[in-house]
Write a protein that binds this DNA or RNA. Structure first.
Length: 585
RNA sequence: GGGGACGUAGCGUAGCCGGCUCAACGCAUCAGAUUGUCGAUCUGAGGAUCGCGGGUUCGAAUCCCGUCGUCCCCGCCA
């Protein structure tokens, strides 16, 4: 070992100890006589002193030190003088008086200061990611990520789970997201795909009798990026045999409880609430509601059928709905804010934003005159409005109405500061529809994925009214973020074939793409189900970061490139030729 | 595929919306000073032709067009 201690561990108890420290020069304070050097490593910072009176040659050597030089310092731990103790540092009561200095490596002037509060653009950070990752905050993020993974592995090990690796080079099954493709040299003209998730393999492991599987798995999707979406990401992937929803909820709640306790020292209340998809949509207009604030949607469709306000009565007559949000006593609601909110919902697709201001004598505002006194009273009562409150209305088709009000709800909560950041709102949303209709392709497709089981009592609608079939799927939502999803799977071959049929896959196509799964289902597949947690999102929330790029060591930019390595890159003629991909041929 | 914000010394920004102190500020860098600092301090110095290309103009960082890049959002993400 080049060192006896790290830069974060020495304190008064180590007084007079001979030590050797290694690390990077974080700061140099040259007083002409005394030179102070802060040495930084992963664990912290320790001050080293060079005194010309005790060792002139050594002091001379220290004058050459610059930022980010890598050094090894031999010395003795001294207590700091009265009044020079640095309370901000865990090592602040001591300093190391150097007796020997070895410069292990020099460094170019760092492109930016290695400090948590450094204000940097992301492209610069990614080109010099190794410098960016030297910042204590980034190291903390990666360390937390490691801890979360460790807790997960320990937890599932204790519960009898086996971690199994599934292939990265696998088969393209283009349903939903686009696959990343890898050409095969040995099989010219054929391609592997990188997995979008280990879904099919984990189901096959259940058929193999593995019983309880988990994996911290890399997944790949060739889709456009967002703050919470990278082309490669990590999920905690779980699958169990002989279980129902409840078992899986309990299992996931247990690991979440442990993670929050051991990282944030937060005691989560379990079990988490369960909300059906229908209820979530009706109350929040959204399948991943943030319940840290109220502002629930109020459905007024029934009440306003044939009402005096023609815009709404027409919407309802043509099959649309009218819903409202009550905003209790907003701080300010000048005309400009109303206009901004109106523009906002218009950009989502609404024609406009009707509103009431509730005054002492009842609702006021530009549209109030179109409603009868009775209608106004009913609305106010149903929305539970009081003087000073505002009610915002949206009338349109169901989808748009929910979408617009859900986003308006989020915006109002943010603007009004209604979000309690100290709260963690976990929620299960279940009973999603099994299918959704794809207008463009004129066919039903899976809402979740085609291996999701339906509720037994809804099976009667499978061929007549697929939109009515609810699935045994569930999402885990944390503070309005979709943290993970899962389902009880289909374990019967005939049922799986039926589902492929509903989504318009004929026998031949189903055989080509998923034959390996259906065949396996024919050999005694146990009832099984599972779940997957987005690790990047979970860790980002634990770290308090807005983007998952803050918790991924080497992320990609929005154009899906790596500024550090310049990947993806052009490959050589020779490589193309070997793969049989050279277009010139 | 679409909408928005941004792009000026190594880094972060001002100047741009009223074109003619063509370049300012902070940090960093370099030199000198400094026995106790800890985001050290003081003095001084060097460093950008304003993402790139084209246009308008006597004259452009500043206006126009195109293009490239970064970020946010919509679509997309079974």
């Amino acid at each position: 070992m080049l060192r006896t201690h790290t830069c974060g561990e020495l304190n008064g108890k180590d007084f007079d100890r001979d030590v050797v420290l290694t690390g990077w020069v974080a700061a140099r304070r040259d007083h002409g006589n005394l030179i102070f050097i802060d040495i930084r490593d992963r664990e912290g910072i320790t001050q080293v002193v060079f005194n010309p009176e005790t060792n002139k040659a050594l002091h001379k050597q220290a004058e050459a030190l610059r930022s980010e030089y890598v050094v090894q310092v031999d010395g003795k731990v001294h207590m700091r003088l009265e009044g020079t103790i640095n309370k901000k540092l865990p090592t602040g009561e001591i300093e190391v008086v150097a007796s020997k200095l070895t410069i292990l490596n020099t460094s170019q002037t760092p492109v930016f200061e290695i400090a948590d509060d450094a204000d940097l653009s992301e492209d610069v950070r990614y080109v010099y990611r190794y410098l960016d990752l030297r910042r204590p905050k980034m190291q903390k993020n990666l360390l937390l990520r490691h801890r979360v993974c460790k807790i997960m592995r320990d937890h599932f090990d204790e519960k009898g789970f086996i971690e199994v690796e599934t292939p990265i080079l696998t088969k393209s099954t283009p349903e939903g997201a686009r696959d990343y493709l890898v050409p095969s040299r040995v099989n010219k003209g054929k391609f592997f795909a990188l997995p979008q998730s280990p879904q099919l393999f984990k189901q096959i492991l259940m058929i193999s009798g593995l019983d309880k599987y988990f994996q911290i798995a890399k997944c790949f999707r060739d889709e456009d990026l967002r703050a919470d979406r990278q082309p490669e990401f990590t999920q905690l992937d779980i699958e169990l045999s002989f279980v129902d929803e409840k078992d899986i909820f309990t299992l996931v709640e247990g690991v979440m409880q442990k993670i929050f306790k051991e990282t944030l020292k937060l005691e989560l209340k379990i079990p988490f609430d369960i909300l059906s998809y229908d209820d979530a949509m009706s109350r929040f207009g959204c399948d991943k509601p943030d319940r840290r604030y109220g502002l629930e949607l109020v459905d007024l469709t029934e009440e306003l059928e044939g009402c005096g306000f023609k815009v709404f009565s027409d919407v309802i007559a043509s099959g649309g709905i009218v819903k409202a949000i009550l905003l209790p006593r907003p701080k300010e609601m000048p005309r400009s804010r109303i206009d901004a909110l109106t523009e906002f919902v218009k950009s989502i697709g609404l024609k406009g934003l009707a509103y009431f201001k509730i005054g002492a004598k009842g609702p006021e505002g530009p549209v109030a005159k179109f409603f009868t006194d009775e209608e106004k009273e009913i609305i106010t009562k149903k929305a539970d409005g009081a003087p000073g409150d505002y009610i915002f209305f949206a009338g349109s088709d169901k989808f748009l109405c929910n979408e617009a009000l859900s986003r308006l709800r989020t915006r109002l909560a943010r603007e009004e500061g209604l979000i309690d950041k100290t709260e963690q709102d976990f929620l299960w949303v279940n009973d999603f529809p099994l299918f959704k209709y794809n207008q463009e392709e004129k066919r039903w497709e899976s809402e979740h994925h085609p291996f999701t089981a339906a509720h037994d009592k809804d099976l009667q609608y499978l061929s007549k009214d697929p939109g009515r079939v609810r699935s045994r799927s569930y999402d885990l939502v944390l503070n309005g973020v979709e943290l993970g999803s899962g389902s009880i799977r289909i374990h019967r071959k005939d049922m799986q074939e039926k589902i492929f049929n509903v989504i318009g896959m004929d026998k031949k196509e189903a055989e080509e793409r998923f034959g390996f799964l259906t065949r396996a289902l024919g050999f005694g597949a146990p009832p099984h189900g599972g779940f997957a947690v987005g690790l990047d999102r979970l860790v980002a929330i634990l770290c308090g970061c807005d983007s998952i790029r803050e918790v991924i060591a080497f992320p990609k930019t929005q154009r899906a490139i790596s500024p550090l390595t310049q990947a993806p890159s052009i490959i050589s003629e020779k490589q193309l030729n070997e793969l049989g991909l050279n277009i010139k041929d």
